[in-house]
Design a protein around this nucleic acid. Structure first.
Lengths: 244, 244
DNA sequence: CGCGCGTTTGACGAAGTTCAACCCTGGTGG
DNA sequence: CCACCAGGGTTGAACTTCGTCAAACGCGCG
């Protein structure tokens, strides 16, 4: 069953070997001395902002691993209403599906680098490397837990709670490494994207952020960066402990 | 690596062998002549309505496969607001998680039969039967797609569209087999559960159903059964094509 | 019979959307 | 070099949908 792929050059294996985010992603399930196979199975792409990676309803042909930047995943209604179901950033994969077609769309938010695996290659990896499959199962299970948390947000939280949850999640999940700048939240996406992610309108998002700013819970650096002044109060807001 | 479990009786293997819903579930990944191992790894439980299967935040010790009835999965906020993230019925599993604790709760809706796998046993099955793991990956991937669809509903659909989507999903996904009763939707759960699933209040759910009834799109049999008179119009409503 | 639970219906109010105007910033071209 | 323009963001006022509160209904069960 195991099929060996022949290595045709030195640069391919080099790519995966020096990949800085390998141990953040599913690729860390492949052994160091087998990286040639991984490198051969995938192709690295660099994509400008607002590039469509996946067209909703199109044939499922590829699987992507994000190595730089942020990709938004979404579903739409015929009349154009859109719900962003998640942001895939460094270390996350996208494009897994059982059906023959994608049930969702994907578009780059900023400049993005991905490794693309065509479906047959992915199948081979799954078959040959049990650890890879296990790691993928773990990853999908995590995604599902996140999706459930988001359903709670969309179904039961107020606008304030949604925005607070969003900022908090981005703060803890993607901390700014710069010393003394720990509580800076980076928001590469536009207000439209945030609104479509939180199930609100851009006006409500804008008003809510302004309101949090007036209350000194956050402070704006610019439109794509926010400093959290009181993580505690933000946490309280996010879990709905404002009035109780 | 493969560990053989010893069979200690005839009835255990019999249970899985005669299991009528096996090929609807992850268990169909296990070969007929290996069913003894499956039977040994699991225990069948019968549970009355409103039984807590999983306590939110408790230690993750077991994995369940539903063989009869319906289980609701949910997440809650400290003040009691609740979001039902899905209903697991015949053939579906529940209880998979990466973390050591469950991030969600689970409770039976009606009388339920489950097969319970303790975590160590599940690990063994995953390690020894690649097909089982593959099947589970497929199942979780499907769950994720469903979750995304539900996010679209919760974030972007109106009350009418939500109720229509819900009824339609239950109709196509769980057709009534009785001849001449094809368009009967069974609703084992209460209005509270429906509301908590759709991100609405019981009053709004009730009003919306009444409204659909007045418009002759559906007809009520009793409170836990509804006949769909016009699947086409329901479909139109569900996808938001009312005004366009 | 009467109690309790789940459901339905109505009147009212609040949260968030819609519509519209305005502002700010960065890029382009005269 | 600066004016203009376009796209994203903010703010305000009116409106709509859905939630809240309250009352009544119906059904099953002790």
């Amino acid at each position: 069953m195991r099929r060996r792929l022949v290595l045709n050059g030195g640069e391919d294996i080099h790519r995966c070997l020096v990949c800085e985010i390998r141990d953040q992603s599913v690729c860390n399930a492949i052994d160091d001395n087998e990286l040639a196979i991984l490198a051969k199975a995938s192709k690295q792409l660099s994509l400008p902002p607002a590039t469509t990676l996946i067209e909703e309803g199109s044939a499922a042909q590829a699987f992507y691993n994000v190595t730089a930047g942020t990709v938004k995943l979404f579903k739409s209604l015929p009349d154009g209403r859109r719900q962003i179901t998640g942001f895939a950033d460094v270390g996350h994969f996208l494009g897994l599906t059982n059906a023959g077609t994608y049930s969702f769309g994907a578009e780059t938010v900023n400049t993005v680098q991905v490794c693309r695996f065509m479906r047959p290659q992915l199948e081979i990896l799954l078959n040959d490397y049990p650890l890879f499959e296990r790691r993928l199962l773990a990853e999908v299970t995590d995604e599902l837990a996140e999706a459930q948390e988001q359903m709670l947000l969309l179904g039961r939280k107020t606008a304030r709670e949604r925005v607070a949850s969003f900022l908090l999640a981005r703060m803890v999940h993607r901390p700014c490494q710069v010393k003394g700048e720990e509580n800076i939240v980076s928001l590469p996406m536009t207000r439209v994207d945030i609104a479509d992610y939180l199930g609100l309108t851009i006006e409500t998002v804008s008003r809510t952020i302004s309101s949090l700013r007036r209350e000194k819970i956050i402070a704006g650096t610019d439109h794509h960066g926010i400093r959290v002044l009181s993580p505690t109060r933000l946490q309280g807001l996010a879990s709905g402990q404002e009035h109780s």
